[in-house]
Simulated scan of single mutants.
Amino acid sequence: MTTFHIPTQSNFIEAEGTRYAYRTFGREEGVPLVLFVHFRGTMENWDPALLAPLAEVRPVIVFDNKGIGETDGETPTTITEMAQDAVTFIRALGLEQVDVLGFSIGGMVAQEVALQEKTLIRKMVLAGTAPEAGVNPSQEVFERMNRHGGTEQDGINDFMFFFYGDTETSRAAGMASLKRIFAQKRFDSSDQVKEAQLQAIAKWAQPKPKTHYEWLRTIEHPVLVTNGVKDVMAPTENSYLLTEKIPNAQLIVYPDAGHGHLFQFPELFAAHVNLFLDSDAI
């Protein structure tokens, strides 16, 4: 296990009336890798066991988008607006080109950024996510996502249900990851973030007649799509759709894993991401 230091203090930058919080670390040279986090997550929800091997070989940037964590403002209710805010933040840093890793709702935002700002992204990783009008999760998932109140243990149980499989090996790796995240976690997202992101996901999931996902063919960037073999949050069928329709996409499916595959196999996932980002093959 690498011991690369992950910073715990945030930097701030003002852009278009919003004060964005972010942390940057890793190598100074190379194309920066910007991470877009999952539903209700802040930049402290990334597993440090995943961040460290990424930072060993490239600059890494984690940030709180508008209204989340340490960033002020109000979280918008559409993926399009979230993508616009992400672009505003990246441009404010003076970056002309970045790589992007988008997880869950972060992968939806990443797709929108690729469509809005084609030259800003060099390569993109889409982990445990879905295209617009993709395959929806079960009613049980929606109900648990919308649940209010409950104990801390209820929250942990929901997280394990959403992110990991029902095997002992998957759940044990998930709990180990959760402990690493809890050890660094200081800021939570608000109820406003939850409600806004739920609205955005619901709009993104609405069926679009006769689209056949052809709009995905306009994403010309090299893309790595990843998922667990059984993702209940963003059903794994969506990963096959993304890979089939995006012209320069490739797919990795992790065994005995679900939505949280990148945290279940942090070092292996990081190795795959590093190989993809460093390769000239596509």
Rank of each mutant, 00 (worst) to 15 (best):
Thr2Cys: 07
Thr2Gly: 12
Thr3His: 10
Thr3Asn: 13
Gln9Ile: 14
Phe12His: 14
Ile13Phe: 04
Glu16Met: 05
Gly17Trp: 14
Gly17Phe: 14
Gly17His: 11
Gly30Tyr: 08
Val34His: 00
Phe36Glu: 03
Phe39Cys: 02
Gly41Asn: 07
Gly41His: 01
Gly41Leu: 03
Thr42Pro: 00
Thr42Gln: 00
Thr42Asn: 02
Pro48Glu: 06
Ala52Phe: 05
Ala55Phe: 10
Ile61His: 04
Ile61Lys: 03
Gly67Pro: 01
Thr71Val: 03
Gly73Arg: 04
Glu74Lys: 13
Pro76Gln: 06
Thr77Leu: 08
Thr77Ala: 13
Thr77Trp: 03
Thr78Met: 11
Met82Ala: 10
Met82Thr: 03
Ala92Cys: 03
Asp99Arg: 06
Gly102Thr: 08
Gly106Thr: 10
Gly106Phe: 02
Gly106Asp: 06
Val109Glu: 03
Ala114Glu: 06
Glu117Cys: 12
Leu120Tyr: 09
Met124Ser: 10
Leu126Pro: 00
Gly128Asn: 08
Thr129His: 05
Thr129Pro: 00
Ala130Asp: 04
Asn136Leu: 12
Glu143Val: 09
Arg144Met: 13
Ile156Trp: 09
Met160Tyr: 09
Phe161Met: 12
Phe163Cys: 14
Tyr164Asn: 02
Gly165Ile: 01
Gly165Cys: 02
Glu168Gly: 02
Ala176Thr: 11
Ser177Cys: 05
Leu178Asp: 01
Ile181His: 04
Phe182Tyr: 12
Val193Asn: 00
Val193Met: 03
Ala196Val: 08
Ala202Trp: 05
Thr211Val: 09
His212Thr: 07
Glu214Leu: 14
Glu214Trp: 11
Leu216Ser: 05
Arg217Cys: 10
Thr218Gln: 14
His221Asn: 13
Thr226His: 00
Val229Ser: 12
Val232Asn: 02
Val232Thr: 08
Met233Gly: 01
Glu237His: 10
Tyr240Ser: 07
Leu242Met: 07
Glu244Phe: 12
Asn248Asp: 13
Gln250Met: 13
Ile252Gly: 03
Ile252Thr: 03
Pro255Cys: 11
Gln264Gly: 08
Leu268Met: 11
Phe269Gln: 01
Ala271Pro: 00
His272Val: 00
Asn274Cys: 11
Asn274Ala: 15
Asp280Ile: 04
Ile282Gly: 06
